[in-house]
């Protein structure tokens, strides 16, 4: 069996660090930049903006006359500074449900996703 030299070991170890460090760095550096919108505060409530935009496209296909600014204002009133998890649990128990691509979604989440889709359009 070929023995690893100290240099190789360091280099391998280093590469792990580099890769790991590169991951974090790349995330910061390569983070997708989105043009600012008047409803970024709402979009920021969901973790995966690209994923949200993907679902949002399917939600938009179901909603007629989606006007982002009005929708954002309505959502802010509904959310009223509460955690998103609380609001969407309330959506489910109050039967405020929307559909996107067949997925049954809490309405507030669906509409935030729709805003994310509008923002990336």
């Amino acid at each position: 069996m070929k023995r690893l030299t100290r240099r190789q070991t360091l280099w391998l170890g280093g590469s792990v660090v580099v890769v790991a460090g590169g991951g974090v760095g790349a995330r910061l550096l390569l983070r997708k930049r989105f043009a600012p919108t008047p409803y970024d505060d709402l979009i920021a409530l969901v973790e995966d903006r690209d994923g949200a935009a993907q679902i949002g496209e399917t939600v938009l296909a179901e909603v007629e006359d989606f006007e982002p600014k009005t929708m954002a204002a309505d959502l802010r009133t509904r959310i009223a500074g509460r955690p998103l998890a609380t609001v969407i649990a309330e959506d489910a128990s109050d039967r405020r449900i929307a559909e996107g691509g067949g997925w049954v979604l809490p309405e507030t989440l669906a509409l935030i996703c729709a805003l994310a889709a509008k923002a990336s359009a």
Partner: peptide, 16 residues
């Protein structure tokens, strides 16, 4: 599919 995976990830995260 990809939309399905996104729907699950986004919804579960939002529900905590």
């Amino acid at each position: 599919d990809d939309v399905g995976k996104a729907a699950v990830a986004v919804t579960a995260a939002a529900l905590g």
